[in-house]
Design a protein around this nucleic acid. Structure first.
Lengths: 238, 238
DNA sequence: CAAATAGTGTCTGTTAGACACTATATG
DNA sequence: CATATAGTGTCTAACAGACACTATTTG
């Protein structure tokens, strides 16, 4: 049999394959805290529990797994996040009551203001402060996935400025430092933090200033296009 | 409807889901070169082409994706590699002619001697030197996957001693340094390389020596249990 | 002025790079 | 002895930590 004949006669439904989903973990930074987007499950299984805003691949419309992740996030937030990276994939016989199940997980970051309106509007999606997750029971193994996403983001805070994507387009260095500090769970030397960002020329001075209300106003910066990919050769103390 | 009723009535076959495979990239180090394990495809599509030793999840017998990866590697090499780590997952509408397809990829490392016998025995599996891949046409997108695996391993050579898993249980520091040099495509300062491994106390002196035939013999070391997880805070020059 | 927040100067400590040196094997 | 390979001593350079200092805002 040649390949053409094989493909014409191939019936996918004859093969039993695990169910596959995509689960993005969307973080943001708001009110001095890291928050994660959760949605209330409207269907079985684990109906009524809160979980990640994931779902099945739409083979008609999604060209890739990334597009599935972006589509699901867009459905809930109305926007496309500026940062999306694959986290890891978990698949085993027990994580879903229905079947052997695989989920491809992503980490995404977005400014809180960009999706504030839409999320405040609906009551089946909301932001949860990371530290409050311990008290909640989440659907499936979503608590584990969020833990892994947070841990990966914490690592990135040591050698990159990826956490900046959880801030608005224009942000100050004290704000960015605070996001990193929340992720690391410890304070960072201001001088060390600024020096490495300066030297690598990762940010653009917008010329604008932002004041917290009292005290000296801070300069507003914007990221360069490639700054999210930059990695420092030396980590901050962990 | 309650969850019990839902699960009883759930028919997976009613939902169209992408096909899912697991593709491990097994590297080894032999004759001063990095090699990757390829197998000749016995089935459509891409029959006759060389590709990764992957396959479908066996829902009856595989408890997790890792087990699928290890099972496939064991079928080809007769052994279980000491290092296995998830690489990334690629899924899109075009990579497989049959259907929307997802593959979960792994990077694995093993000492060449451990699977030498079995692989030399069969003619549908063999080790290919990494630099020779450019000239070959591989099945599916396996060339891309190998490139990503190599790139990830190159990064790890900068901040860990994970490449040591491509060597036998007992190895010398000059050998390990050479594996790193091949991965990085450049030479490393001997002093820098040894100093950081010494200070982190990652290796155990076996008391044995190994001679290249001429010149001073080198001390044979073995890894500590946790040394694969250790990461240096500062990278080697890249 | 004080208080608060932003931002800098500068010293120290750690660690990688460079490279010359010593050590130990073979023939 | 020469040659080859293993392993060390030590100086320099880069960069993070520490922390005191200055700068700029509000009230």
């Amino acid at each position: 049999m040649n390949e053409k004949t094989y493909l014409a006669s191939y019936k996918k439904s004859e093969f039993d394959t695990p169910i596959i989903t995509v689960d993005p973990v969307l973080f943001t930074y708001h009110e001095d805290q890291l928050k994660v987007l959760l949605v209330k499950r409207a269907n079985h299984p684990d109906i009524g529990l809160w979980g990640l805003p994931g779902g099945f691949v739409d083979q008609e419309n999604d060209q890739s797994l990334e597009q599935t992740a972006l589509r699901k996030l867009n459905e809930k937030t109305g926007v496309i996040p500026p940062y999306l990276e694959q986290l890891y994939t978990v698949g085993n016989a027990t994580r879903d009551k229905r079947s052997w199940a695989v989920t491809v997980c992503y980490t995404a970051l977005i400014a809180h203001q960009l999706c504030e309106a839409k999320i405040a509007d609906v009551d089946d999606a909301h932001w949860v402060v990371l530290d409050e997750l311990e008290k909640m029971t989440l659907a499936f193994d979503h608590a584990d996935i969020i833990t892994k996403a947070r841990e990966r983001l914490r690592q990135k805070a040591l050698y990159s400025i990826v956490p900046a994507y959880a801030l608005p387009e224009k942000f100050t260095l004290p704000e960015l430092q605070h996001v990193h500090e929340v992720l690391l769970g410890k304070s960072i030397q201001k001088k060390s933090f600024r020096r490495r960002i300066d030297q690598a020329e990762l940010l653009i001075d917008t010329g604008e200033m932002y004041s917290m209300g009292s005290g000296r106003p801070a300069v507003l910066y914007r990221m360069k296009k490639t700054s999210g990919d930059y990695t420092f050769v030396r980590n901050l103390e962990s």
